[in-house]
Amino acid sequence: MKPFAYTRPAEAADAVAEVAANPDAAYIGGGTNLVDHMKLGIAEPTSLVDVRDLLSHRVEKLPDGRIRVGAAVPNSDLAAHPEIREHYPVLSQALLAGASGQLRNAATTGGNLLQRTRCVYFQNRAMPCNKREPGTGCAAIEGYGRYNAVLGASEHCVATHPSDMAVALTALGAQVRVLGPSGERTIDLPGLHRLPGDTPQRDTILEHGDLITAVDLPRLPLAARSAYRKVRDRASYAFALVSVAAALRVVDGTVEDVRVAFGGLAHAPWRAHRAEEELRGGPATEEAFRDAARAELADAETGPGNAFKVPMAVNTLAATLRDLSTEETS
């Protein structure tokens, strides 16, 4: 590991100024992803700016009914928060489906959003990877493809985004609050994460120096009936092959409102607008759920390693919506 300076500024503005001034500086929060990457030699910051203490650790209700989650709120605290369990179960479930108890205690809300792909080639310095080292090629396209993207990939990168939490936040349409060198701004999800295109080294639209300070959850009564369903190779402590975050309201057998996002399919959490449009106003039947999922997956491109993801995504969305619609009538 390369030597690095470590600072812990008291104010967010100071942290931003410090990172913005040094292209090789990085923020560190819980460190569960970054420290690992530093050990692997795939991140080599010369300066770490610790923002864990200066960012908010609170989950607070805003006067307009939204919920503001401080960027330093640990994943475990957010999952267990009574307000989240009651009004945004999809978010609690997504968080609890990720990592292990120890990691959730350390990992932060902001850091979870910015965690990087678990593509095995990205994590191995001996292999070419356009995300880690632009221009070297993509070893995953012809290699071990089980975790490769099926939607929105490019000839340069087929990595998937690993976060469960971000999939739930994408379905909810959360807003990410960012403090950058030129001030504050908000980014509506799914606008934070990007598709790889010609620049797979960039996971998000954030610029160097940008610091996530909070995530705002919209007031969304629909979310009270929501769920996260994750399919993986082990029963626990594994990344998603496919996951679904969904919220559903059915009235008299008709889908009145619905939100859907997929994980495990793309370089970014995938908000399923097409499926939502198909579903809205239609019958809440297994057949309709499957048709909507198929419509969303219509442009999927697969290889031998990941072709299973298309039927798996259809089945997973259908099962999630079936469970939510059954709860509705019971």
Binding site: R8, G31, T32, V35, D36, G101, Q102, L103, N105
Partner: peptide, 12 residues
């Protein structure tokens, strides 16, 4: 709180 001590720097 339980954490893995390998993924955090002592200086923090």
């Amino acid at each position: 709180r339980r954490v893995v001590s390998c993924l955090t720097f002592a200086v923090a």
